[in-house]
Design a binder for these strands. Structure first.
Lengths: 355, 355
DNA sequence: CTGAAAGCGCTTACAG
DNA sequence: CTGAAAGCGCTTACAG
């Protein structure tokens, strides 16, 4: 069964079914203007011939692609699995399909985004992007953009992100309950995670509010000094220390170091990915409400395209912002909104099983 | 600076530059037929107007999209980071851009693939797909397909995969050197990884060849029985046991369990992702040569599209299969090829630092 | 080296 | 309820 030289088109289906090309298009799009019998006949014919719509053509004709692009720096952070899945579901609800593109270095990210833009995706979601605010702002003049988990690019771009201050307070409070009298924050290098600095600041503030000492340890992944030595040193210098890991990957390493040292040190991390739930680790972790963030991101995008979500479910989802009303505030040039979502602490053994 | 209502087209550029539309297209495509001065003028104008090619239109006109699709079940397995990056580089070398689409359940995967096919990507790479051989075969009649790391779908589809038997032998030999007198294989549930069974079989064979006992432990991620108890039990039953983890994620859990138990048990895993290199774990792991596998996958795809890679680098890359020669064997209906790549064992502390 | 024209496969008013 | 026609933005022979 050799593959046909040429893909089958609506013209082929129309000829075979004995109707006009336009009618095939209408019928396949499920238009109510087409008689049921006709539609069924056309659908049957299309299926028999193995017809698949050519999106490059339909997009060109309709001016719509029904596509949303997600730009990720890499596929390493397990949080990306979480958010990609939630975004896919949210996009689907609103009638879009999700395309993922990867680029860490600024130039790679730019190429990835260019692919998306030239394909005319209807919106772009940026997660943990290393792009400068300025570049994001320029991009946002071309296409609807929503940033998840980053800074707000000067208020020009819609942003959905964790409430870092509330999260920091929850983490600090929880560690104090677990017996900590000082805090050690295990940070990635800033170039590895654009969020590191803000998280560090929020934690420092929360620690200060609690009156307890706080220290940042920026981890070089190639770790010159063994982590247990660092933790031991901090424990000597600061007293009963509670460890905060920037994310679950960092926390895994910390957890092993703590176990190896035999110290009783409570550990909390961020993201609450599947790694945090590995039974041998059971990390207490700050959950990011990915479903909610994703739905809001898609909604923001829809509002900027000026296109309402296709489904009732999508339309009912949101209440933030001002859907109706102020004409000036809507459409592409509407100012950037900044949505802060509250954290939830998933408490597990890493911070509680110390006795 | 409000976003323009309508994207700027080649027509706009042509008008502004005072040339014909066709010439704009040629110039922007870098055709040598256009005078340098003219090209520069057109390029300058296009840039000034903020022109971006509309791929939906150019693809329709040229019949080419320059796109390759990667289908992943999820973004959890850190190996996917590895392979996606390598594939992107290989695709780039051959003049393609990579689009990633995610779908675990068979129906989600089908929808994801449908997105790709209807966009007219020029080839599809399937990694760890849960799709049945039959469905893969049907897909391959529509579009060039290459499967990385799976079975060969009955010889109808091109496959690139690790030499599981050689890997198993290397693992077993290494563990024996490390003092193991029996093997415990920590497997995921088959529905979580389509590769689990084959790997288990290969390990069982290698163990049998070495005359040492072998046992499979299928891990339920929600782990009813603590892993250290399982390992301890195996050690009692089998003697000095060496543990083989199906991949680095499983190995992390195993490593923690081993550390907690205080046993001296060598541990080896598969994939050699960044997790294996976390300093506190330092897992000995079977490296999958992702760059090579990716280049071969792209080459297979190129051969099936009948389109040679655009660059010399791409054209020079391969030697497997029979590029020239047999007319019957080429093009879309060429039979599936099965490329087996040799493993490399990255040796680290998890199997050597036992004394 | 440049221009005019046809056509890619689809959608979408517009007539009937 | 169905058909004929225009047009989406681009590429690509074909003339000149």
């Amino acid at each position: 069964m050799p593959r046909p030289r040429r893909a089958v088109t609506q013209t082929d289906v129309a000829r075979e079914a004995g109707v006009s090309r336009g009618l095939v298009s209408l019928a396949l799009a499920g238009s109510p203007l087409v008689a049921d019998a006709t539609r069924e006949h056309i659908e049957e014919t299309a299926h028999r011939l193995g017809y698949r719509v050519n999106r490059t053509a339909s997009s060109l004709a309709s001016g719509r692609t029904g596509l949303i692009g997600l730009v990720l720096p890499d596929l390493r952070n397990p949080f990306f699995d979480f958010i990609a899945d939630a975004l896919r579901a949210a996009a689907r609800e609103a009638g879009f399909r999700l395309l993922i593109v990867v680029g860490r270095a600024a130039e790679d990210a730019a190429e990835a985004i260019d692919t998306l833009v030239s394909m005319r995706v209807e919106g772009v979601v940026l997660v943990s992007s290393a792009m400068s605010d300025e570049r994001i702002r320029v991009l946002a003049e071309t296409i609807p953009v929503c940033v998840i988990g980053g800074q707000s690019a000067g208020g020009f771009v819609d942003t959905v992100r964790l409430d870092e201050r509330a999260a920091a307070r929850a983490v600090v409070d929880h560690l104090v309950e677990a017996g900590a009298q000082a805090f050690l924050y295990l940070a990635p290098r800033p170039e590895d995670d654009p969020n590191a600095e803000e998280r560090g600041r929020a934690l420092a503030q929360a620690a200060e509010a609690s009156g307890l000492p706080f220290e940042i340890l920026t981890r070089n992944p190639l770790g010159a000094v063994p982590l247990e030595d660092e933790i031991a040193r901090a424990a000597v210098a600061l007293g009963r220390v509670g460890v905060v890991a920037h994310n679950d990957v960092v926390a895994l390493d910390a957890s092993a170091a703590i176990a190896a040292s035999g110290m009783r040190v409570p550990l909390v991390s961020y993201d609450d990915t599947y790694l945090a739930r590995l039974p041998e680790f059971s990390l207490t972790s700050v959950e990011q409400p990915a479903e909610r963030m994703s739905r809001d991101a898609i909604r923001f995008l829809c509002e900027r395209t000026g296109r309402m979500p296709l489904t009732a479910a999508g339309a009912a989802a949101g209440a933030v912002g001002t859907p109706g009303g102020d004409e000036e505030g809507e459409g592409p040039s509407m100012p950037g909104r900044d949505l802060i979502v509250p954290p939830v602490l998933a408490v597990r053994a890493s911070s509680t099983a110390l006795s």
